[in-house]
């Protein structure tokens, strides 16, 4: 039962990625402007011969299908083409930077899930003033955009208190941990609040559920009720929301990497898009989509494993 479910989700993943690749390639194919003029630069009008040469070298005049298949084939072999502005292979540009971004996303994910789930659970279990406080603070935090949070954190913790560096990605594990704390915080805040609120309502719903009443009625001690009934049953929604949050971080990276001057693929995407560096933008857009879909598929599979009703419904 669960095997068929996983196979179905995997097939859907591949289909989504293919559709996304057509959209990504197509959108930039029909985008206005000639990337070749950027490569030449300067004030003088470029010579037609030179332009033609560039168009031939970078396959800029190929028909859509031919260009798409060449590009897709290259992507599948790990060759994402050449960047026009960086004069480097896209693959190299990406591999150089992806470490920083992965570290940042993982760091932010930990900052979201651990305190988010803890706060939400405590708020729901204890109720009263703590519950109100958590609800008010998280609602306020949810409304703060990432770029505002970045500026506030830089001004407060870096400029005012000089606690943490505000620029760069650092070297090694501890260096990165130090440099990426503020960016990860900025990235995590809104999602943390969201996860805390979803946790709170999921835990409250379970606490009020009949099967939890049964557990109380049988004299099961509180720690078992909370662990084996409340948190166990709330785990499904918690996991899906956390998954969406982590997938959302990948998109949110661009803003934070720009704000904190981190050399990652988010910043690379912003810079390349500004310079019409087609190959880079296409590759990064596709990577983002694939990672997003993979994370979501993993979440779906784990959710189904946690709650058998999901997979039963899916295959019925």
């Amino acid at each position: 039962m669960i095997g068929r479910f996983v196979a179905r989700r995997a097939a859907m993943l591949v289909a989504t990625a293919l559709v996304a690749s057509v959209a990504v390639y197509g959108a930039l194919f029909i985008a206005p402007g000639d990337p070749a003029t950027l490569l030449i630069g300067g004030g003088k009008p470029p010579s037609p011969q030179l332009l033609a040469e560039i168009h031939r070298q970078y396959h800029l005049d190929d028909p859509f299908l031919q260009g798409y298949l060449r590009w897709l084939g290259g992507m599948l072999h790990g060759d994402a083409g050449q960047s026009l502005t960086y004069k480097d292979s896209v693959t190299h540009l990406v591999t150089e930077r992806i470490g920083n971004t992965a570290f940042l996303v993982a760091y932010a994910a930990v900052l979201i899930i651990v305190p988010g789930v803890t706060l939400g659970t405590v708020a729901a279990l204890r109720g009263g003033f703590g519950d109100t406080l958590v609800t008010v603070v998280t609602t306020a935090l949810m409304a703060v955009p990432t770029f505002v949070m970045s500026v506030v954190l830089i001004w407060w913790l870096s400029v005012q208190w000089d606690w943490l560096p505000a620029y760069g990605a650092g070297e090694g594990f501890t260096g990165r941990l130090e440099h990426l704390t503020l960016p990860a915080l900025a990235l995590a805040t809104a999602w943390l609040a969201y996860v805390a609120q979803v946790t709170r309502s999921a835990v409250r719903a379970e606490l009020a559920s009949e099967h939890v009443e049964t557990a109380w009625a049988r004299g099961v001690p509180e720690r078992f009720v909370v662990r084996k009934h409340v948190l166990r049953n709330a785990a499904g929604p918690l996991f899906s929301v956390s998954g969406v949050a982590v997938a959302g971080l990948i998109a949110g990276c661009s803003i934070v990497e720009q704000a904190f001057g981190i050399n990652g693929i988010g910043a690379l995407l912003v810079q390349s898009a500004a310079k019409q560096d087609l190959a880079v933008v296409q590759a990064l857009a596709l990577i983002t989509v694939v990672v997003f879909v993979v994370v979501n598929t993993l979440v779906d599979v784990v959710t189904a494993a946690l709650d058998h009703r999901v997979s039963l419904e899916g295959t019925a």
């Binding site: 559920s209 009949e210 099967h211 009443e213 049964t214 557990a215 109380w216 009625a217 049988r218 004299g219 099961v220 084996k228 009934h229 166990r232 049953n233 499904g236 946690l306 709650d307 058998h308 009703r309």
Partner: peptide
């Protein structure tokens, strides 16, 4: 009292038994 002396049978077993365990 709940564990040793008094046991309760609820109306709707589908809601009153944890569905995921």
């Amino acid at each position: 009292l709940r564990a040793h002396d008094v046991a309760m049978v609820f109306q709707d077993p589908r809601a009153h038994i944890n569905p995921v365990r």
